[in-house]
């Protein structure tokens, strides 16, 4: 099933458009991504499933504008990824927590940061911004943590707080890279419900990238499998875990047939697709 996604022909309601994108780190290196086309409708939850080294994080970095595609074009909400990111419409949660947790900040300070950086230095952060930050913490179920020091949070709590920080910036697109690493299946389900509630209230388009089937099942309406090239699997009646596991087995067979050295959709917590060796 190597078809382009079903989509409205006008394309006006597309949050993300990717056309024929290829990427390699060097001119003579192997392609990490090859001819990837992808349209994400506004308000949609798209899951991108793929093995380690399949190019998932690379695709996200291209959507964020921190990598430039070797070929093809990308637009996010009708703008180039770089200007979309600068205008603050893309929320992003990196794969590994990159935050400096020794920082003596409380949860509330962290969630207020998006409003703080938009407030002129001589002004106080407004009450509306404070209320919005508090609402974002409520949405992710972390309202009780608002006075907790950031370094004292558990892994799951920290992740919720970082999502609250991302949505406090009022983005229209939310990109999540491996958001449930280390969370059990029950936790992934709850995470999916939380994310869906956030998406509905904030009117967000959500793209989740993961090598874990359960994560994609819990967070996505539509799924694409990425391993250098992108394969779409539309599930018009909602993506049930049964359908997904079918898709997953199918792709697992593809990966093995094409000689992916023992890599599958599940397994290691670490992605190394930054390396030139990925995706060959």
């Amino acid at each position: 099933m190597d078809a382009s996604p079903s989509q409205s022909p006008s394309g006006a309601d597309h949050a993300i458009r990717v056309e024929g994108v290829s990427f390699a780190y060097d001119a003579d290196a192997d392609l990490i991504l090859e001819g990837v086309s992808l349209n994400v409708r506004a308000g949609e939850r798209l899951g991108i499933l793929g093995p380690n080294g399949g190019g998932k994080s690379t695709l996200l970095k291209i959507l964020l504008g921190s990598l430039k595609p070797t070929a093809g074009s990308v637009s996010v909400l009708g703008q180039s990824p770089v200007s979309a990111r600068r205008s603050g419409v893309i929320g992003y949660l990196p794969q590994r927590v990159s935050a400096e947790l020794r920082f003596p900040l409380r949860v509330e300070d962290v969630v207020l940061q998006p409003a703080a950086v938009r407030t002129a230095p001589w002004r106080r952060i407004g009450d509306a911004d404070r209320a919005h930050a508090a609402r974002c913490l409520e949405m992710v179920g972390a309202a009780a943590l608002r006075s907790t020091r950031i370094g004292a949070l558990s892994g799951g709590q920290l992740q919720r707080v970082l999502i609250a920080r991302a949505i406090a910036a009022k983005p229209r697109v939310l990109l999540l890279d491996e958001p449930t690493v280390g969370i059990d299946v029950e936790g992934q389900k709850r995470f999916g419900e939380m994310l869906d509630a956030v998406r509905t209230e904030m009117n967000l388009t959500v793209v989740v990238v993961s090598h874990e089937l359960a994560t994609i099942a819990a967070t996505s309406d539509r799924v694409a499998c990425l391993r250098r090239t992108l394969h779409f699997h539309d599930a018009p009646h909602g993506l049930t875990p049964e359908v997904l596991s079918e898709v997953f087995r199918h792709d697992l067979a593809i990966f093995q047939a094409s000689g992916a050295k023992g890599e599958a959709c599940c397994g290691h917590d670490h992605d190394h697709e930054d390396g030139a060796g990925g995706g060959s």
């Binding site: 964020l64 921190s66 990111r85 600068r86 205008s87 603050g88 893309i90 929320g91 992003y92 949660l93 990196p94 990159s98 935050a99 400096e100 920082f103 900040l105 962290v110 940061q113 998006p114 703080a116 950086v117 938009r118 407030t119 230095p121 970082l162 920080r165 991302a166 910036a169 983005p171």
Partner: peptide, 20 residues
């Protein structure tokens, strides 16, 4: 003058860009 962007960037360099 730069205390707010400085704090946001110092706290998380990777996501500071998405906050503008």
């Amino acid at each position: 003058w730069i205390r707010r962007p400085l704090t946001a960037w110092a706290f998380d360099e990777q996501t500071a860009g998405s906050l503008g």
